[in-house]
């Protein structure tokens, strides 16, 4: 097991930038494909690419194709339980600590790239022969950066109320939403919508500054119990993103950390962070602004982040509605002016 030991920030950053450019030159569509697979809730790169082609690269419509495709398949079973330690890590950072066991592995990311259109700025790093990216980090069995805080006893544990996970594709969840149902809904949620809701939390309508305890992207093996031998067999691998955040809350008059978890198909850090913040807000409503918090309301968050639903309904208004409109016209023409009888202000 080898890992990049970052000696000094500058070297690590330059390596990370160079790595990123190589990464995207191998596949310039990678983040779009990952978004579509995640929101389409079907992990298939081949079909995702095909969907893009046939819909003019509209990510929401492409996601719709994938969801429909999913319906056509028979369910053969459930994957074996896995954990974030099973990730083969390409990139892992923890904002909570300066350095942690296994280090801050920057990996391929555009975080440190200046968004300047001046071609010469970033070119110098891309072409710098001194910076090597041949050592690709793929560490395994790395515990979450939040473990340290758990061991200090400073994290409020979430009670595990369910014995088996809810399956939202087989049974429609109703409030009070079991946590596994909430997480499934969010894992296939639309990135922009989830970002919006998480942003309301960040800006004051919620717990204003969570800390990322562990953010990782990498490869996760998918295991299945063989129907005949009943042994665990690896049937494939997916790209995935996992994020744990920590917020602050009061329990029994003591300040403690809270946690929230985000996970999605493909590499999509914005979505995983937003999801973790929303999970945190749903389980631990902000203890200062109370009911004005938007992200703490499961009926707002969980009912409005599915892009396939909202896309469809938004665009359905384009369908003919002249019968309903005729009915509206009639109501206006024939109803007398209603008297205002409200005196609730007294």
């Amino acid at each position: 097991m080898a890992y990049v030991a970052a000696k000094g920030g500058e070297e690590a950053i330059s390596a990370s930038i160079k790595y990123f450019f190589k990464f995207i030159s191998d596949d310039p569509l990678i983040f779009l494909i990952d978004k579509i697979m995640s929101e389409g809730a079907l992990y298939t790169e081949e079909l995702a690419r095909h969907c893009l082609q046939i819909c003019g690269s509209d990510p929401l419509v492409a996601g719709n194709y994938l969801r429909a495709q999913r319906t056509a398949y028979k369910r053969v079973g459930y994957a074996e339980l896995t954990s974030l330690e099973q990730f083969r890590i390409l990139r892992r950072i923890s904002s909570a600590f300066k350095d942690i066991p296994y280090g801050q592995i920057l990996g391929p990311t555009n975080d440190y790239i200046l968004k300047i259109l001046n071609g010469t700025w970033n070119q110098t790093i891309q072409d710098d022969p001194k910076i090597k990216t041949t050592q690709l980090v793929q560490v395994e069995n790395v515990p979450s950066g939040v473990e340290v805080v758990r061991q200090m006893g400073l994290l409020i544990p979430l009670e595990a109320k369910e014995t088996k996970p809810f399956d939202i594709t087989r049974k429609h969840p109703q409030p009070p939403y079991p946590r596994s149902a909430a997480l499934q809904i969010m894992a296939r949620g639309e990135t922009g919508g989830m970002l919006l809701l998480a942003y309301t939390s960040m800006r004051g309508y919620g717990d204003v500054h969570p800390t990322i305890g562990d953010l990782r992207i990498g490869f996760l093996g998918v295991y299945f119990k063989h129907p005949l031998t009943e042994k665990k067999v690896k049937i494939g691998e997916i790209r995935a993103t996992s994020c744990e955040v920590m917020g602050v809350s009061k329990t029994k008059n003591t300040l403690k950390f809270t946690s929230g978890y985000g996970f999605c198909f493909g590499f999509n850090e914005t979505k995983a962070i937003s999801m973790a913040i929303l999970d945190n807000a749903l389980n631990f409503p902000a203890y200062t602004v109370g009911e004005r918090s938007i992200a703490s309301n499961p009926e707002i968050v969980l009912e409005h982040i599915d892009s396939i639903e909202s896309l469809g309904f938004c665009n359905h208004y384009k369908l003919p509605h002249y019968v309903t409109f005729m009915a509206d016209l009639n109501v206006m023409k024939t109803n007398p002016t209603q008297k205002d009888t409200s005196n609730e202000n007294l």
Partner: peptide, 12 residues
């Protein structure tokens, strides 16, 4: 009544 029959205002 507290409601004005001409303009529907509430004279509270």
């Amino acid at each position: 009544s507290i409601i004005c029959p001409y303009c529907q205002s509430v004279v509270a």
